[in-house]
């Protein structure tokens, strides 16, 4: 087992532990956590299974196995960023509705007092 493999295993396990802790403490909602768990699981898998990367690269026709890692990571990051933009857009819309309701309700409340 090479030095880099040990480092990879330890860091991905630590990452998995950290995510589990966040979920347990209720700081990370489950629906957002699923993606993180899957990503970390993939990391752990490949840090144990060294030949796996070469086998998969061969399968999809990538010459240099590290490129498979980069492509996979970039695609995952893009999808996740898009997902976050969706979440933010939804929050912004809900926020707007809440603010409008508050303004209208505040006006009603002061009218009753006055």
């Amino acid at each position: 087992m090479g030095r880099i493999q040990i480092i990879a295993i330890i860091s991905s396990l630590l990452f998995l532990y950290y995510i589990a802790r966040l979920i347990l403490k209720g700081k990370l909602r489950e629906e957002y956590a699923i993606m993180w768990i899957i990503c970390t699981a993939v990391l752990v898998l490949f840090s144990f299974w060294r030949d796996g990367l070469e086998i998969i690269s061969d399968l999809i026709g990538v010459y240099a196995p590290p490129n498979t890692v980069f492509i996979g990571a970039i695609i995952a990051i893009l999808i996740y960023l898009l997902h976050l933009s969706l979440v933010v857009s939804k929050l912004q819309e809900q926020n707007k509705i809440l603010a409008q309701e508050i303004a209208i309700l505040k006006q009603k409340a002061t009218k009753k007092d006055g």
Partner: peptide, 20 residues
Amino acid sequence: ALNLPINLGIGGAVQTGFKY
């Protein structure tokens, strides 16, 4: 007077008035 608790921009502000 409708006082928005956060800044919504022109569209959100006008819509508040229309909703009222």
